[in-house]
């Protein structure tokens, strides 16, 4: 995969190798530090270290830069920037929808790209959404999930943050397919655009990160569980499969191995919730398997 890209993106290959090295290190050190933790997160020791690294970097560099960006640019400009990058993404969102057999959605994504690139002036105006063509959220990680590949161990990647073994593979392909990264020259322009894209994305998350601060007792665990819930929902486009019996086993058995069906039933009774028609969401985190 990377070999063919030597000429186009040599820098990235080096970068990727560093990432692989980091991951191998993660696997090794993770194995060493596993101690009765969450089965979804066997490399918690490494992940926490990465989380701390990312969090520190974020506090010292990324968040201040994003805050400055938010302060000095007017709202419409930030919207243009966001739309410009979102428009480029639509091409491969379409590819992923096609790969998942969602041909209408995939076609919609490409039509969106066509309209936004032309009528929307290089994508800075999202005219397609105004026309009722809804934007989708797809990537290769989701496509793999749709194909039945489980998420594998949770991973916190340097810079990229929460991921999983499967989503890391997906991310690799996302980058390989990223038009901005591979076809934009000169390199200085590409790097500037990539930087702007990163800042734009982080800026959109400023509010969310404040809420996270407020809500979480352990931000690492909160963020991990949110990531796993979110990815699972995304794979099923917001409608993950549920079964009627899941209500009674809503406790994650992984975390409470001693939970007996009796306890679970008592708890279900406690909540006075018995309607199977409106299926409760509380089971989301409990279901580890993507299928």
């Amino acid at each position: 995969m990377t070999g063919t890209r030597e000429t186009a993106g040599g820098g990235w290959v080096v970068h990727a190798r560093a990432l692989v090295a980091a991951l191998v290190f993660a696997l090794v050190s993770g194995c060493a530090t596993t101690s009765g933790g969450d089965p979804r997160d066997p490399f918690e020791g490494f992940n926490r270290a990465m989380y701390t690294f990312n969090d520190g970097l974020d506090t010292v560099v990324v968040k201040p830069v994003s805050t400055v960006y938010k302060t000095i640019t007017p709202d419409p400009v930030r919207t243009w920037v966001r739309n410009f990058f979102a428009n480029i993404e639509d091409v491969f969102i379409g590819v992923n929808n096609m790969l998942q057999g969602k041909f209408v959605d995939g076609w919609t994504d490409w039509v969106r790209f066509a309209f936004n690139t032309t009528l929307g002036v290089a994508g800075i105006n999202d005219v397609a959404s105004e026309m009722g063509l809804e934007k989708h959220n797809e990537d290769f990680g989701q496509t793999f999930g749709r194909w039945g590949i489980g998420s594998g161990p949770y991973l916190v990647l340097p810079l990229f943050g929460p991921s999983s073994a499967r989503d890391f593979g997906g991310l690799w392909l996302d980058w390989t397919a990223d038009p901005l990264w591979y076809y934009t020259r000169p390199i200085a322009l590409r790097n500037s655009l990539a930087f702007l894209r990163g800042v734009s994305r982080r800026t959109d998350l400023l509010d969310a990160s404040r809420i996270l601060e407020e809500a979480a007792l352990d931000k690492y665990v909160f963020q991990r569980d949110a990531y796993l819930q979110r990815r699972r929902a995304l794979i099923y486009d917001g409608n993950p499969p549920r079964d009627g019996s899941s209500r009674l086993r809503e406790e994650p058995s992984a975390d409470a191995p001693t939970a007996t069906p009796g306890v679970a039933r008592m708890q279900a009774a406690d909540q006075v919730l018995e309607a199977p028609a409106a299926t409760p969401p509380a089971v989301l985190a409990a279901d580890q398997g993507e299928r």
Binding site: G238, D255, A282
Partner: peptide, 15 residues
């Protein structure tokens, strides 16, 4: 965004 608030606390709390 399909993240259940209560489910998100469950692991944390049970730990």
């Amino acid at each position: 965004a399909d993240i259940s608030l209560t489910a998100n606390y469950r692991t944390e709390f049970s730990n």
